[in-house]
Each structure stands twice: as C-alpha cells, then as structure tokens.
C-alpha cells in the first residue's frame, strides 16, 4: 500500500484524540466512551477515527509496552554498521527482522570518522549477550558489512518522552479534513 500523506488527513478532532490518548488509554470498562465523554464527542466517531488512524499508520499499534529492564533485558546496545549504499535496503530489512532488534534505520554517514549508515538497537540480558548477538549478525552479513561497532549507553542525561502536540495545526490547511472512515 502506498504511504498516504497522513498529516493532511488528520483534522482537529483527530488531534484532540491523539492528545487525549498519548499518555495512555483510560482503565475503565469503556475506554473509548470515556475519551469521547472528555472530548464531548460521539463514542462511535472516536472509535472510527482511531481505526482510521490504525489503517493509515498514524497509530502503529494499540497495546502494552513492557519495560524491558524489568523483564531482564538490561544490556541494550546501539549497533552501527557500514553497509554499501546499494545494499542498504536489503540489509536493513534482514537486520530489522531479527528477533533481538527493536529499531532499525538507515541514517546518513558522517565523513571518514563515521562511515556507519545502518543503526540497529540490539537487546540482550547483559552486554556480553548483546556483543555475541552483534557478532552473530556480522557473521550472517559477511561481506555485506564493511565495519561495525556497538555503542552502549553509560548514562541517561534526559528522558522526557515524545509528546507532540496533537492539536498543533501550524502550517497545515485546516480545511483539509477527512471524514471519519
């Protein structure tokens, strides 16, 4: 399915719903009705809009996010890879599909000191396990990778979480609204 330009399709009501649910869903028997009540909307409209946002990919998924530290995954490393430009998409898909990888992106190289253009967060119970997994990925990629390393975090300096203002419509056409699916 081609990617939709979803930013133009989100209207002010969608953005209110986004804002109301960024911190989570209400823990009441009818959470969507609860959101509708808070926003003075119709519950069916809220549910239709949430489903439409799932279809367009604005909502990646709805569910629980386990805290990986609490589940015993304490050794998380950012692995970075130097991959030939011609191979980046195919290699990115291979690495992204590995069970231990949570985020996998192509990013621009930064000159001779930073030839790495593929980033993959690798999760393990400790750093040794992460290093072993990265070594196994390197083996699997063989000559498709020309260099790699792992950057472990040594300190969290700031963590506020992403809270984009759902209702901000700066630079968008307010008339470009989408009817609920």
């Amino acid at each position: 399915m081609p990617e939709l330009d979803t930013t133009k399709e989100l209207d002010a009501t969608d953005r209110l719903i986004i804002e109301a649910t960024q911190a989570g869903l209400p823990l009441t028997p009818q959470p969507y009705h609860e959101i509708a009540k808070r926003l003075e909307l119709d519950a069916k409209d809220v549910m239709d809009r949430i489903k439409a946002m799932q279809d367009s990919g604005v909502i990646r998924r709805i569910g629980v996010v386990p805290n990986h530290y609490k589940l015993g995954y304490r050794g998380n490393g950012m692995s970075v890879w130097d991959i030939a430009d011609a191979d980046i998409s195919s290699v990115g898909k291979i690495v992204g599909a590995l069970d231990c990888v949570s985020h996998c992106y192509h990013r621009p190289r930064q000159g001779v000191d930073w030839p790495y253009n593929l980033f993959a967060m690798v999760h393990g119970h400790d750093r040794t396990e992460v290093a072993d997994k990265v070594a196994a990925i390197a083996d699997q990629l063989g000559e498709l990778q020309k260099g790699h390393k792992i950057l472990f975090s040594t300190r969290i300096l700031k963590k506020t979480g992403l809270r984009l203002k759902g209702s901000n419509t700066t630079g968008r056409d307010p008339s470009a609204t989408r009817s609920a699916a």
């Binding site: 869903l25 823990l27 604005v58 909502i59 709805i62 629980v64 386990p66 984009l164």
Partner: peptide, 26 residues
C-alpha cells in the same frame, strides 16, 4: 483492568495505549 493497572504501577509495563508514529502526525 486491575492487572494492567498494577503492572503499570509496578513499572513492568511502561505504557498502555495507542503508540503513535511521530512523522505521520506531522
């Protein structure tokens, strides 16, 4: 409902709800 509430309070879950795609939100 009670279990999700407790798992959130204990920090076993860091979130419960829709996960949004920042770029697709503009």
């Amino acid at each position: 409902i009670g279990r999700i509430e407790k798992l959130l309070a204990d920090g076993v879950l860091s979130r419960f709800g829709p996960l949004y795609h920042a770029e697709k939100m503009g």
